[in-house]
Design a protein around this nucleic acid. Structure first.
Lengths: 144, 144
DNA sequence: TTTATAAAAGACAACTTTATCTTTTATAAA
DNA sequence: TTTATAAAAGATAAAGTTGTCTTTTATAAA
């Protein structure tokens, strides 16, 4: 569905957002440890997220990654777009390059519904809303 | 969502099923041409589909691949299972190894609905039903 | 039985994704 | 200004997916 990199990215964003109130920046190492991902690889992903202004970074001592208030409203869709692109929400299940209502593959009309539901869900869900669920202890970012 | 190989597989199955009434067997070359996929790679995929009894094959002259009547009732889910496995219908969007109603990731309850809808759709859709849509000219297996 | 044909099987190559390591750049504090 | 620190950038490597080519096996027809 979505790539491993993208899953790391979503977990990282939610974790950082959950610490938005504390005036601290989180290092790659801390983030990687929390989300149970390889540190160097996490660094690469954070780089991309920073470039796309999904999170903010600061170099040097006491530096690291953090979430600005406005970034809490970022839809999860933007993370997926930054890491994987939007193909998963658009591509034909059967792999046709041109698949549309006018030139449909045999699964088109049925599958379109699912893709739309998925797109809506990812657009409406924000980093902040997920962070709140995590803060409240209703959900988790790591394995037991 | 699903792999390129799996998309080739679904297209191939539907094409073969659409020829079930003719008493002919289709060669890898013919299948590959119809579904616009590389021939050798299509051969590998057909091999897997035959092993899983999703299609039937016969070696030698006048041989090739064909669909037996009972195989028309095979759910598309079985093709996905044969090529990609069922992870896409089961895995956590955020990549947790243990994600469940009891230990949910922040997207769990929302995303579970989509996964269930997808699983239901793929279980209820059969190769034969897609082949009929193709035969009727309501849908296509190739680009324009 | 021999021959031609087509899938099966196996080895291998290209490309993409995931992951690591080293060097460079920015910045806060001393 | 110097120093220590942490991200950015770049090169490289491992693993997985996609794709090719050659050899082997099965089978239908002559």
């Amino acid at each position: 569905m979505i790539s491993k990199s993208c899953k790391y990215a979503i977990r990282a964003c939610v974790f950082i957002a959950s610490r938005v109130d504390e005036d601290i920046k989180l290092s790659v190492k801390e983030i990687a440890h929390e989300i149970e991902a390889p540190a160097a690889f996490t660094g690469k992903i954070m780089q991309t997220l920073n470039k796309r202004r999904i999170v903010t970074s600061l170099k040097g001592p006491y530096g690291g990654f953090y979430c600005e208030k406005f970034q809490l409203d970022t839809p999860i869709l933007e993370i997926v777009n930054a890491i994987d692109g939007l193909a998963v929400f658009k591509e034909c299940v059967m792999g046709l390059h041109q698949c549309s209502d006018d030139h449909p593959c045999p699964m088109h009309f049925e599958y379109s519904k699912t893709k739309e539901a998925l797109l809506r869900s990812f657009s409406e869900t924000t980093i902040g809303s997920l962070a709140n669920k995590f803060i409240d202890g209703d959900s988790f970012l790591t394995n037991v």
